[in-house]
């Protein structure tokens, strides 16, 4: 019963979510959109090496993930989680420094783009291998329980593509076996890179897997901010209160390339007219206007504030020194006395 609740995502935006929370989420989404557009233009201008990966279309889901987590919780964000990272407390400067390769960033130029985090602040640094962060989150939760911590929860995100890895299966199962307060938010944005759903899985909805793993499952319309807040907020709350692990499956369309190098010309024209293809940010802004939650001046001010914050983070990072191979500490272990003398 639970598993199918909310399957079709029929709620109207804003109905259940208190307005304050809705507006806060909207501002994280807006900041994310502005930041990611900036990153894209830096990338196009040759100022970012490697790649840029954006969460366009998934801002509502991601913002909701970050907003219900607090200090002491664990968040393992993935590729399309700028909004959630920011809402959880990652400074914008961390993002700019990592993308621009500043030696002062959390990754010090050693890793780039979305591969960033601060484990001590509860934000794990993803590796690329999809699904690999799930058991790591489980481990942090297990340890917290062993240490006697209370009132914590762990959340990680994944795409419908990453849902098909062995690591995801093992990680989901072990979370249930250990009975830790765990939430997995899977976004089906209908493409894993260029691969459409029909070559990824064949069940009607990924949320159908929830009972098989011993999870509570809910699916939602990822373009509807209000529903994202209600459903993800509820899942976090139930896990925190000692409920079973939670699987939330959001439906969206990736409104960008896989990375900014990709023109996504493989996306079928028909799919762009689907409900899940709507832009969550645009929908939220329309709702705010319709309901009169904020006036035009306020919206303009928020946009200006976010733009200023983004520009400041980028220009700060741009002025900072790049890492230098000659000054780099070429050791991969913390026990310096045991660094192998190989060369």
């Amino acid at each position: 019963m639970l598993q199918t609740a909310g399957r079709k995502g029929t709620s109207t935006p804003g109905k259940a979510a208190p307005h304050k929370r809705y507006l806060e989420a909207f501002r994280w989404m807006l900041q994310t959109r502005i930041f990611e557009e900036k990153l894209t233009s830096l990338y196009r201008g040759g100022l970012i090496t490697g790649g840029v990966y954006v969460g366009r279309g998934q801002e509502a889901v991601s913002a909701a993930c970050g907003m219900f987590l607090k200090k002491g919780d664990v968040f393992a964000p993935l590729i399309r989680d700028q909004a959630g990272r920011a809402a959880f407390g990652e400074p914008l400067l961390d993002v700019a420094r990592t993308y621009l390769g500043s030696r002062q960033g959390p990754m010090r130029g050693r890793d780039g783009n979305i591969h960033r985090g601060r484990p001590r602040a509860g934000q794990l640094a993803m590796i690329s291998h999809l699904g690999a962060m799930i058991p790591v989150v489980v481990g942090t939760l297990l340890a917290k329980r062993m240490k006697g911590e209370k009132d914590f929860v762990g959340l990680t995100t994944i795409g419908e593509g990453g849902m098909q890895t062995g690591a995801t299966h093992e990680g989901m199962n072990i979370a249930a076996v250990e009975g830790v307060p765990f939430v997995l938010v899977a976004t089906n944005n209908h493409y894993a890179y260029s691969t459409p759903n029909d070559r990824e899985f064949v069940c009607a909805d990924l949320v159908d897997r929830a009972p098989a793993y011993g999870y509570e499952g809910r699916s939602l319309d990822g373009t509807d901010l209000s529903e994202c807040l209600d459903v993800i907020g509820g899942a976090v709350e139930r896990a925190r209160a000692g409920g079973p692990p939670q699987l939330v499956v959001a439906s969206t369309l990736r409104l960008a390339g896989h990375g900014e190098h990709d023109d996504a010309s493989y996306v079928a024209a028909e799919i762009k007219g689907e409900d899940f293809a709507r832009d969550s940010l645009q929908r939220a802004e329309e709702f705010i206007k319709e309901e009169g939650l904020a006036d035009a001046d306020t919206l303009a001010q928020w946009r200006a504030d976010a733009t200023a914050q983004v520009n400041e983070a980028v220009s700060t990072a741009q002025e900072e020194a790049a890492p230098d191979g000659n000054e780099e500490d070429w050791s991969a272990i913390s026990t310096r006395t045991l660094t192998d003398r190989i060369s």
């Binding site: 090496t49 130029g109 890492p323 780099e328 050791s331």
Partner: peptide, 16 residues
Amino acid sequence: AKDTPIPYHPNLWSEH
């Protein structure tokens, strides 16, 4: 290569 993971930044990668 050096005995560390492969670095992202071109300055580090070219030394690695």
